[in-house]
Simulated scan of single mutants.
Amino acid sequence: MTQAPLPPGLELDRAHRRRRRYMVVFWILAFVSAAIGNTLTERMDADRYGISAATWQIATNEFTSVLVSLLMLPFLLRACDRWPLHADTWRRRLPLYVLGSILWCALHVAGMDLLRLFVYRSAGVAFEPGSLRMQLIYEYLKDIRTVFVIVAFWHMVEWFGRRVQGEAHLLDAPDEGAPVEPVDRPERFLVRKLGRDFLVATADIEWAQASGNYVNLRVRGRDYPLRSTLAALETRLDPAVFVRAHRSYIVQLAQVTAIEPLDAGEARLHMADGSVLPCSRRYRESLRSVAAGAGPVPARA
Rank of each mutant, 00 (worst) to 15 (best):
D175E: 06
Q57K: 09
R48M: 02
R247M: 10
F118Q: 14
A267G: 13
V297R: 13
R82G: 01
E206P: 00
L103Y: 09
V219Y: 11
W90I: 11
R93N: 15
P129W: 06
D197P: 00
I28N: 08
V25R: 08
I36F: 02
D143R: 10
A231R: 14
H155I: 10
C80H: 11
V180D: 14
Y22E: 05
R284H: 12
I28W: 12
H16D: 12
C105S: 15
R92M: 14
L117F: 01
I259R: 15
N61L: 03
L117A: 01
R268G: 12
V200N: 06
T2H: 13
A173W: 05
F118R: 15
E42L: 13
T229P: 04
C80Y: 09
D197R: 03
A231Q: 14
F198N: 03
V98G: 09
G50P: 07
H246Q: 10
T229M: 07
A201K: 04
E42A: 11
L132E: 05
A203S: 12
P179Y: 12
I51P: 00
M156Q: 13
F63S: 00
L287P: 04
S52T: 04
A59K: 14
V68M: 08
M112V: 03
R48D: 01
S228Y: 10
I205E: 07
L117D: 03
D184L: 03
Q57C: 02
V191A: 00
V276Q: 11
L96H: 15
Y97I: 13
R163E: 15
R14T: 08
V147I: 14
V125F: 06
S33W: 04
W159A: 13
Y22H: 11
L6R: 15
A53C: 00
S33G: 08
P84A: 02
N38M: 06
R244T: 14
R82P: 01
F189C: 00
C279W: 11
F153E: 07
V109R: 14
F63T: 05
T89P: 05
G124Q: 10
E167L: 02
P296W: 11
A291C: 04
V68W: 11
G100D: 06
L194W: 10
R284I: 10
L253H: 12
R21V: 10
I144E: 01
T39Q: 04
S101N: 09
H108P: 04
G100M: 04
P174T: 09
P225T: 15
H108V: 07
P5E: 06
E176R: 09
